[in-house]
Every structure is written in structure tokens, then in C-alpha cells.
């Protein structure tokens, strides 16, 4: 990858590149965070789907009993955090690819970022409330 014609012609030093000071001033952070959250979501999603299968037909009390169990509460919160983080990173790329107006792009990026944090916080608080208040 280093020896493509573009990079041979680039004025940017290789040190500048590896320090993450590319055109976006971000380096590989976004890419890496997307992969790390994806890897975390593999087991968490499988656990979640398996849990939903087991919970099919459960009523309010049965669901509370399940979600209030220590391990289930912890995994639910981890799932919510990894999922909303991954969703934010993915939606960001989609917006950056397709929205070309700077104003709309910035507005939608803020909307997605604040929205995912809001919903993640609500979901975490919901799990805590179920878990701690019974």
C-alpha cells in the first residue's frame, strides 16, 4: 500500500502518516474503533438473539426477572454500548459518503452522534432501573 504512485508523489512524510495526521487529522482511529466494536458485537449479538428466543412469550414479570439477573444486566449494557457505538460509526460513514452539503452533513453527524448517545444512555438507565429497583 505504501508504494502506490500517489504516495510516492505525496509531500507528506511517512512519519506524518503513521502519526495519524492524515487529511482528516484522525488516522485510523475510526476504522479501528469500527472493527473493535464489530468484534465485541459478534458474541454479544449471538447472546442477545439466543436470549430473545428464550424469552419469547414471556410476560412483564418474567422479563424483569431475566433482565434483573446480574449477568444479563451486564451483558445487556455491554450490548447496548457496543451497538450504539458501532451504529454511530457506521452511520457517520454513510452520511459522509452521500451528504455533500457541509451544513446538512454537519447537522446530520451531530444529530446521529447526540441521538445514539441519548438512546444508549436511556437504554442503560432502563437496564439499571430494572436491575436495581426490581
Amino acid at each position: 500500500m505504501i508504494n502506490t504512485p500517489q504516495q510516492k508523489r505525496s509531500l507528506q512524510s511517512k512519519l506524518g502518516r503513521v502519526r495519524g495526521l492524515g487529511s482528516t487529522r484522525e488516522g485510523v482511529h475510526h476504522w479501528w474503533a469500527q472493527r473493535m466494536s464489530a468484534v465485541a458485537l459478534l458474541p454479544l449479538s449471538l447472546w442477545f438473539v439466543y436470549s430473545l428466543i428464550s424469552l419469547t412469550g414471556s410476560d412483564y414479570d418474567a422479563f424483569h426477572a431475566w433482565a434483573g439477573e446480574f449477568g444479563n444486566s451486564v451483558f445487556l449494557m455491554l450490548f447496548v454500548v457496543a451497538m450504539f457505538h458501532h451504529a454511530q460509526l457506521g452511520l457517520q460513514v454513510v452520511i459522509e459518503d452521500y451528504v455533500h452539503s457541509e451544513v446538512w452533513k454537519m447537522g446530520m453527524l451531530l444529530f446521529v452522534k447526540y441521538g445514539t448517545v441519548l438512546f444508549a444512555a436511556s437504554a442503560i438507565f432502563a437496564v439499571l432501573k430494572i436491575s436495581l429497583a426490581g
Partner: peptide, 13 residues
């Protein structure tokens, strides 16, 4: 789907 999950958990709480 993530939004729906957040709504579902909030409704249970």
C-alpha cells in the same frame, strides 16, 4: 433496530 431495543427496554423500566 437499536432504537426499537432502547424503546423496548425503556418500556420495561
Amino acid at each position: 433496530a437499536a432504537l426499537l431495543l432502547a424503546y423496548w427496554l425503556a418500556s420495561a423500566a
